[in-house]
Nucleic acid binder design. Structure first.
Lengths: 141, 141
DNA sequence: GGATAAAGGTTGGATATCAAACCTTTTCGG
DNA sequence: CCGAAAAGGTTTGATATCCAACCTTTATCC
């Protein structure tokens, strides 16, 4: 076992996760949404309203990326943007009704993904994998 | 420890690896090259000449992506494209002198990355992490 | 209190990436 | 043989992503 491929394996695993999610979203007829939008929606399922800055931090993307992603979610009617009355600079993002309706579907997709990832991996192994990944993550910028 | 974040942790670790590589390439004054180009160059360090199809498979990218990446490497003078005489459809990619000169630098960058990733992780843990990652990779499309 | 700095967002420019459509060349079936 | 299918690449169009520059609004400092 050559442990020098670690970077390629991680990159490839991430690509596989992405492929699976895209495939599932397509299968469920959720058109025009990608995994990154899912991350935003998930954050909004758990947080009534969030400003762009915090949203960017939560999904770990550049704020300009989040501007674009949220723009698409607005265009598709899944979220709304509302200016803060206290601070004119701040914009809040919140789910629309249509966005709220996505929650059960997305949670199923998420569950399916997790089940699939961990297929054949026992709980102790799961914990070990997560522990080690977090460790190497901490070694990186 | 919540093992449901696995997808986010993997994605984030991969992003960290990318950030580190970009930072190193910049530090070394290798301008205009990204980690994906590195993958192509590495394949060429070990294979004299490769056609586009095999190259795409080796670096696990769509062939149209490889067309673009190789195009950039040609533009920067790191590789050359040569038509096969046997099969007019086939194009071979090979390192130029300038490309060959990158080998020691890239191998150092690669070594540094590996050292950094595995900092504080003993060999048994390394093998276990790679084993488990390969396992979950195999569960995905 | 008025200039200056900082903070929140957006815009613009660049790039990696993929899928689908396409073009050429080679192969294959009848 | 010859027409159809397959194979190797490229082009086109769309999207996610980042960084740097920018605009507004708020906070800070002398």
């Amino acid at each position: 076992m050559d442990t020098r491929n670690i970077a390629a394996i991680i990159s490839d695993t991430r690509a596989g996760i992405n492929r699976y999610l895209l495939q599932e979203l397509k299968r469920l007829g959720i058109d025009g949404l990608a995994p990154s939008h899912g991350a935003i929606l998930f954050h909004l399922f758990n947080n009534e309203q969030v400003n762009m800055k915090d949203l960017a931090k939560a999904v770990r993307r550049d704020k300009s990326t989040v501007t674009a992603l949220v723009g698409k979610l607005v265009a598709n009617g899944y979220v709304d943007k509302v200016s803060s009355t206290l601070d004119q600079r701040t914009v809040y993002v919140k789910l629309s009704q249509r966005g709220q309706a996505l929650q059960p579907v997305f949670e199923e997709v998420s569950r399916n993904l997790i089940d699939r990832i961990w297929r054949g991996v026992d709980e102790a192994e799961q914990r070990e994998l997560v522990r080690l990944l977090k460790k190497i993550r901490a070694n990186l910028p």
